[in-house]
Design a protein around this nucleic acid. Structure first.
Ligand SMILES: Nc1ccn([C@H]2C[C@H](O)[C@@H](COP(=O)(O)OP(=O)(O)OP(=O)(O)O)O2)c(=O)n1
Ligand SMILES: [Mg+2]
Ligand SMILES: [Mg+2]
Length: 902
DNA sequence: ACTGTATTGAAG
DNA sequence: CATCGCTTCAATACAGT
């Protein structure tokens, strides 16, 4: 027993409590370890952790798969307590083991002894699952039903017997990926194939849903039984991301990068690139993990080296995430559809489709990175993805092949049989190419001075070069590009640059000489700068089907919430937001071949600057809704929605033009920014029962005239502008600002010259957009908007005309009777409020901006400054507060650069 | 010559 | 039943100044 038995029980008790402040120092190793674990979790990126395992105290007994190291990471990451020693049986809430020898079986007969699967599945489903189905001691349950987070239900066969099943594959697994017999790999010593002693799972594994096992239908009736993007956007997004491999790949990558920066940000960049780098990558990663963790009752005799295997969700248009090398030999590739893969099977051969096992993938990756980070030969372990890293060697790496084999072996043994391959070279590109030759389950060190010999290059096609995908390969296309061996002798730098563009041409040219281009080298010299996040986004291009604008608005709210949360987690704010939409292409079928897929689409996007960097969900949602209307994709045609935030700056950091500018104006100190519009009380509104007095208006007018205004270079202004109206303008979503300015430019005759190319396309798009927007606004579609009436007018367009006429009439300049009548103002305000209440803030914004446009136009020509001042007052003091009152959809945070009071 | 935005392509 | 087609970044083209 590692723990001293002499400890008094009070202290022992405190070990299992949350509070460790009872003493001035830690009393034993376990407490210290737990503190380390908490610190460890605190270090982990916020989004990657959870409280799923809180309340669990886990002890891992014996050899497990995934290994103790990976389980430790898992438990700590998800808020559990990990015990390294078991001082008493009661100390742990759960004992995790693959199997127990008879003596332990007796010892633990009253404990919850579960297979590691319980941890993996609990984390995956986001809640602590019942432990009984995972019991290692054997339960009596015949069948249990687990409810997934997404509310689908699957049948789970519980382990019915504890007797080691002779029919289960218990032979040791040296590796599942057999190396190719490539004569070329002469400098690769044959991998040591002496059998490690990791058994391939003893199968306490519950039967996880697989593509070939239909999931039991839910009782339906519940509205959220099958959440769709339209019916329940939040639940839809959660369920979708739960299942999306690409989402997870991106999320994992971001997490790894963040962890790297956190660990290494203090280190200075290198001044010269390292002399050797080692690129390591799991072989057919998802497929290998899925095979090793497969349901061995369903697939007892599967031979991973000979039988083609692929990982996917479904069977027809489902993407193959990863396929094994047996499948690749038959032409199957990652990313291919399952049906397409199956079509490549010769007669008599079947492709086995296995389900994803995301939790086991994470566990294997944790082991992989732990092994690499524990290697003292590496200066840095640069994460490339969940299954791949570039290791920067400290020295010349004399025994690099031996080292590589040691790593591969450690990883294989500690992941229960996942093989990784290693490529080594003098540059990133050479290591990458070598990795390709090494696969599967091998090592290849690229030599040659200064560059490898022709025999090396002849084994690659241009597609093998990093940065060369389908499009670039097609541009090269010619005969001399069959292999890199011929290409590197036949081409020239200018020729490559002509065909591929300046940068890619140069990159390929460098690669053909075994060198990294400067951009790629940045990762080796200053990885933290490269890994520092420069944008935040969410993309949903699956399951996007809407019938109404209101549904899209609700979806955009969820998107805004998602990115705002992500921003918060990484401690940043955004300076701009982009909405990118996919729209069914003309001629594409309404329902594409892929279930709920996007099909053939056109993509359109538009950005909006936020003025002041923001992370506020209300600001983002408002902009997004305005952008959606600007892009004017008919809702029925929508197939994809993406929100990208850019121009990030730190949470605390001042935006590009905030306090400095205020100080520059000779104003107040840094803390004295004006109050947010939304919180500006209308207390100061000179509301003398009727409209504003002429005096008050004139006074305000003068004051606003001299008050400081935002940098005019940064925010271009309409030719005719007044600070008061300009301030109002700036409070609007930027899309509306843009439209107002464009209207002004058009009206004043500052039209921009006609153009060709993109401008023409843009004009066309605008015209189409105008029609679509009209369809929204006039309500001609009927289904889009219930009418809100103004002066008996339901058509928004005609309302706009009425309002314009009204503004014109009140600014005609005939003296004291000029200015809007208070009763009209009241009616107008009520209309604006109704629009807001009817969830049509965008229309309210539009009609309000219309007024400001009309005013700005008139200010130049006829100069009734009194009427103008009254209007300005109405806009700023009465309309804006109404708009601001709608906090969810309108801004809550943006500040106006105008001094309202003083 | 420089700026900013929209679009494309690649990667895993 | 399907099925879960993300996300980040560099480069480029083009328009405006
Ligand atoms: N189009 C793709 C490509 C990859 N992946 C996932 C599954 C892969 O297993 C994992 C790692 O990608 P790799 O490019 O490393 O591919 P594999 O590991 O599957 O094969 P290998 O590395 O042996 O070529 O990423 C995916 O889901 N879809
Ligand atoms: Mg791989
Ligand atoms: Mg990889």
């Amino acid at each position: 027993m590692p723990d001293s038995p002499g400890k008094d029980s009070a202290k022992r008790l405190s070990d299992t409590r949350e509070d460790d402040s009872h003493g001035g120092y830690f009393h034993n190793k376990r407490v210290k370890q737990r503190a380390q674990d908490r610190a460890l979790q605190a270090q982990m990126p916020a989004g990657s952790t959870s409280r799923v395992l809180s309340g669990c105290t886990v002890y891992v007994n014996g050899h497990t798969d995934p290994p103790r190291l990976a389980l430790h990471d898992l438990v700590v990451r998800h808020g559990g307590v990990f015990l390294h020693y078991l001082s008493s049986k009661g100390a742990a809430t759960h004992i995790v083991a693959e199997h127990l020898p008879p003596r332990k079986r007796v010892e633990f007969r009253n404990c919850k002894v579960v297979s590691p699967r319980w941890l993996l599945d609990s984390v995956q489903q986001g809640r602590q699952l019942p432990w009984a189905p995972y019991s290692v001691l054997g339960g009596s349950a015949a069948e249990n039903t687990l409810t997934l987070a997404g509310a689908d239900t699957i049948a789970v066969a519980a382990e019915s017997s504890t007797i080691p099943n002779a029919s289960v594959n218990t032979r040791t697994v040296p590796s599942v990926n057999t190396p190719t017999v490539a004569a070329e790999r002469t400098n690769t010593p044959t991998p040591n194939v002496s059998a490690p002693t990791v058994a391939a799972g003893n199968s306490n594994t519950p039967n996880v849903a697989s593509p070939t096992v239909p999931t039991a239908p839910a009782p339906s009736t519940r509205a959220d039984a099958f959440p769709t993007a339209a019916s329940d956007p939040e639940a839809f997004l959660r369920s979708y991301f739960e299942h999306s491999r690409l989402h997870k790949l991106s999320e994992w990558k971001a997490r790894l990068r963040q962890e790297f920066v956190r660990a290494h940000s203090a280190e200075p960049p290198l001044t010269a690139p390292p002399s050797r780098v080692l690129h390591i990558d799991f072989d057919c990663f998802f497929a290998t993990v899925a095979f090793l963790h497969r349901d061995k009752r369903r697939f007892p005799a599967l031979d991973f080296a000979r039988d083609p295997v692929a990982v996917c969700h479904g069977r027809g248009s489902s993407d193959v995430a990863s396929c094994n090398y047996a499948a690749r030999a038959l032409g199957v590739r990652n990313g291919m559809w399952a049906a397409s893969a199956q079509r490549r099977m010769p007669a008599g051969t079947t492709l086995t489709l296995l389900p994803y096992d995301f939790a086991a993938i994470e566990a294997a990756s944790a082991t992989f990175y732990a092994v690499l980070r524990g290697c003292p030969d590496f200066r840095w372990v640069l994460p490339v993805s969940i299954d791949e890293a570039v290791c920067v060697l400290r020295g010349e790496g004399e025994d690099e092949i031996v080292l590589a084999e040691q790593l591969r072996r450690a990883i294989r043994e500690r992941t229960g049989g996942c093989t990784a391959s290693v490529g080594i070279g003098a540059s990133l590109v050479l290591a990458r190419l070598a990795l390709r030759l090494a696969k599967p389950d091998g090592v290849y060190a690229a030599g040659g001075d200064p560059s490898p010999p022709d025999s090396f290059w002849e084994q690659f096609s241009v597609r093998d070069l990093p940065g060369v995908g389908g499009a670039a390969a097609a541009k090269l296309g010619g005969a001399d590009t069959a292999t890199l061996g011929t290409l590197r002798h036949s081409t020239t730098l200018p020729s490559l640059q002509t065909q591929l563009g300046n940068k890619l041409g140069g990159k390929v040219w460098a690669a053909l000489h075994g060198q990294d281009d400067p951009e790629s080298q940045r990762m080796l010299l200053d990885p933290c700068a490269v890994f520092d996040r420069k944008s935040v986004a969410v993309d949903i291009n699956w399951g996007i089907r809407f019938a109404t604008v209101a549904q899209v608005d609700a979806f955009l709210d969820v998107c805004a919430g998602y990115v705002a949360n992500k921003l918060r987690e990484c401690g940043k704010r955004a300076g701009s937001v982009t909405l990118k939409l996919h729209r069914r292409a003309a001629g594409a079928p309404v329902e594409p071949p892929k279930y709920l897929g996007m099909g053939r689409c056109d993509a359109v996007s538009q950005a909006a600057g936020l003025g002041v960097p923001s992370g506020d969900v209300g600001v983002l949602a408002t902009e997004l809704k305005a952008l959606f209307r600007a892009l004017a994709v008919p809702v029925q045609e929508l197939r994809g929605v993406a929100v990208h935030l850019a121009k990030l700056c730190g949470d605390q950091e001042a935006g590009p033009r905030t306090p400095g500018q205020w100080l520059g104006k000779g104003r107040v100190g840094a803390g004295a920014l004006p109050a947010p519009v939304s919180t500006t009380p209308k207390a100061t509104t000179p509301k003398g029962g009727a409209g504003p007095s002429a005096n008050a208006s004139a006074e305000r007018y003068r004051r606003l005239r001299v008050s400081p205004v935002k940098d005019r270079a940064a925010v271009p202004r309409p030719a005719a502008s007044d600070p008061g109206v300009a301030a109002f303008l700036e409070a609007l979503p930027s899309q509306l600002q843009r439209e107002v300015r464009r209207d002004l430019a058009g009206a004043i005759g500052e039209t921009t010259g006609g153009g060709r190319g993109r401008l023409r396309a843009e004009m066309q798009r605008r015209a189409e957009a105008a029609r679509a927007v009209n369809a929204h606004l006039t309500g001609s579609g009927g289904t889009l908007l219930a009418p809100v009436r103004f002066q008996g007018e339901a058509s928004f367009k005609r309302v706009c005309r009425t309002v314009e006429a009204w503004v014109a009439a009140t600014c005609s300049g005939d003296g004291p009777n000029d200015g809007p009548h208070e009763r009209d103002v009241h009616v107008f305000l009520r209309y604006v409020e109704k629009l807001c209440a009817g969830d049509r803030v965008h229309l309210a914004l539009r009609v309000a901006s219309l007024v400001s446009t009309a005013l700005a136009l008139r200010e130049g020509s006829c100069g009734d400054t009194r009427a103008y001042a009254e209007w300005e007052h109405i806009l700023v003091r009465r309309v804006l507060p109404v708009l601001n009152r709608n906090r969810l959809t309108f801004q809550t945070e943006r500040k106006l650069d105008v001094e309202w009071e003083v």
